[in-house]
């Protein structure tokens, strides 16, 4: 069942609880931030409207339905899971950074100052949400999975203490597992849930309060649909959202070319072989005729 996140910016008061929770659950340094980087998967930007009102724009990975990053990654380290999250596999990545170039929202960030750098971005708490509360620990206190292997999240081994913290942070008031940001939001501005249900809820809110909202669910159609939806009282371009990304899945653009390649190779291969055969044959004929000519002139003399 694919999940999604709905962020209603009209409900957001800019407290930063989502950001703090995100930093905490991923063991990042607790700090204010205005820009996404390798240690900040979500940010809040404060924007003043013409009327002097304050609006907060939250930014995080859109978890596209057809992600450009995953299609770009040559080793398939980025993956759109059935859960809805776009995740990244530490072990596969070779560090080419094509995902960063390809992402229409410029989300993936890089550990530039590391000698073993990782690509980092919001994973919709994928691994955290799937960490079982009853997972056992070994004698050294590390959490084990069902096959008895130590569990690691982004290359970091999980201890029993970690497990308890993570499970607590990713379990919401209805005792369901959700992203740390949605659990932490005191206003209910960020909600985690089933994608189709959230989309329906978003449209219900637009219909219920047509004066409050711009009549658009950002993320529903962008780049062919995403798993993070935004509602806003202000036009999205004024909030710094990418509004020029189009409604077509970007991977289609490269796939249209890639899918033709087998045919191109086959056609060109046959054509080249044919050209070779013809020119080679012509060369042989020419040589043979020369030989004949020589023989004839010898006979004459």
């Amino acid at each position: 069942m694919p999940h999604a996140i709905l962020v209603d910016l009209t409900e957001c008061v800019g407290c930063g609880a989502c950001r703090d929770a995100c930093q905490q659950v991923h063991h990042f340094p607790q700090e204010e931030c205005t820009q996404l980087d390798a240690h900040n998967f979500t940010t809040l930007r404060q924007i003043e409207t013409a009327e002097g009102e304050e609006v907060f724009a939250r930014q995080m990975c859109q978890h596209c339905q057809d992600p450009a990053c995953a299609s770009a990654c040559l080793v398939g380290a980025l993956e759109k899971t059935r859960d809805g999250a776009v995740t990244w596999d530490t072990d596969k990545c070779i560090g080419c950074r094509y995902c960063m170039v390809a992402c229409p929202f410029d989300i993936p960030k890089y550990e530039w100052n590391s000698n073993n750098p990782k690509v980092r971005k919001c994973t919709m708490c994928y691994q955290e949400r799937h960490l079982r509360a009853d997972a056992t620990t070994d004698s050294e206190g590390y959490v084990l999975d069902r096959s008895g292997k130590r569990v690691s999240i982004d290359g970091r081994l999980v201890t029993g203490e970690d497990r308890d913290m993570i499970v607590e942070m990713t379990t919401n008031s209805e005792s369901k597992r959700a992203t740390a940001c949605s659990v932490a939001c005191p206003m209910g501005a960020t909600v985690f849930g089933e994608r189709s249900a959230l989309l329906a809820e978003a449209h219900r809110r637009l219909r219920a309060n047509p004066d409050t909202y711009v009549q658009k669910v950002y993320g529903q159609k962008e780049v062919g649909g995403t798993s993070v939806f935004y509602l806003s009282s202000m036009p999205f371009e004024k909030l710094g959202f990418s509004t020029k990304v189009g409604t077509e899945g970007l991977p289609d653009r490269t796939w249209r070319v890639l899918e033709k390649l087998p045919d191109v190779v086959l056609t060109a291969g046959v054509a080249l072989s044919a050209v070779y055969w013809i020119t080679n044959r012509r060369e042989d004929v020419r040589k043979y005729e020369e030989e004949l000519k020589k023989q004839r002139s010898q006979q004459k003399s």
């Binding site: 299609s71 770009a72 990654c73 040559l74 080793v75 398939g76 380290a77 596969k92 990545c93 070779i94 080419c96 094509y98 991977p251 490269t254 796939w255 070319v257 890639l258």
Partner: peptide, 12 residues
Amino acid sequence: HALIYQNPHSVL
């Protein structure tokens, strides 16, 4: 890794 983890959808 390009040899073993193949993503045929990737131009790269």
